[in-house]
Design a protein around this nucleic acid. Structure first.
Lengths: 160, 160
DNA sequence: CCCAAAAAAATGCGTTTTCATGTTTTTCGT
DNA sequence: ACGAAAAACATGAAAACGCATTTTTTTGGG
């Protein structure tokens, strides 16, 4: 006994040289995202939704009737994956497809009445969870982080 | 024509009320993480590794001989998934298992010589990529972001 | 106007991932 | 010291996922 690794936090020391993971931006982003999301994802599943369905609902709430490709980008998944998620969400009565009159290659996805209700309900829960989460961070870290993430995200996506 | 949604960035307006996604912390984290990682993940795959194998290599580089459960936490994956990734990495000669003498339930994972070499090589590439990425962010955003993420991650994991 | 190229979405299919459970070893209460 | 509970890891089966390709429609050059 005594050789137990610590729980939770990212490692500090290394074998001999500098630790890498704990100071690597992409790991910090991924693990913070995972840790922060874990709690709410439990709520999502408890509501009978999968994480990706929740993402689709949230994106459509912001702008209903988006085309498949764009929706896949926003909801952070592959196009072919979204196609099948939409199938299932259609089956469970959350969304419907309508082909675009201007360009018949396009399929636009709309919330059903029930889908809109579920979306609104979940967004309320998400806002509450976010507020609670930010509340337990020191000072204004939460808001600062959001501001920073928006800037970085914008730079990564539009810039270059 | 003319009704085209913008490319890339997160939506600003909504149907009628406040936009949600573009200001929601968990989405900001997830999408920034995805956008930032996308580039490097291409490098990883080009090197013949999968993303999760790369994570394992990096974690073991920082501290070799970790037990399965802990390694799964650090490398952001499920325990049963890690078991199988280790199988495959063993097959490709990157790691080896040794059962812990003190507690024979435990399996510790070690880098092979080749694994260590691959890890070192990838970490070099990762550091270079990170530096380039941070360089194209305005001012000190990158470093500020890292500092903030460390704090938030620590709070989410240890605190509470 | 026509045909090749591009764009949007769907689909076939092999791989990955997860969930629940099984097996072995250790811990802990009495 | 014994047996129940817990911890660590492995595994079987089902679902989810992503890649490559196909189908349909639109665009653009000659």
């Amino acid at each position: 006994m005594g050789t137990e690794p610590r729980q939770g936090d990212l490692n500090e020391g290394g074998d001999g040289d500098a630790p890498f993971v704990a100071d690597y931006l992409l790991f910090l982003l991924a693990s913070t995202s995972a840790a922060a999301s874990a709690e709410f994802h439990a709520v999502v599943r408890a509501e009978g939704l999968r994480v990706r369905e929740w993402r689709v609902l949230a994106c459509l709430h912001d702008e209903d009737g988006q085309m498949t490709t764009r929706l896949a980008e926003l909801a952070l998944m592959e196009q072919s994956r979204l196609t099948r998620i939409i199938d299932q969400m259609h089956t469970s009565g959350l969304v419907e497809r309508r082909s675009d009159a201007e360009d018949r290659r396009r399929v636009r996805v709309f919330l059903t009445e029930r889908g809109a209700a579920v979306a609104a309900n979940m967004i309320e829960k998400a806002r509450a969870h976010e507020a609670a989460l930010i509340a337990r961070l020191p000072g204004a870290s939460g808001e600062t982080l959001k501001r920073l993430l928006k800037r970085v995200h914008a730079e990564l996506v539009d810039g270059e």
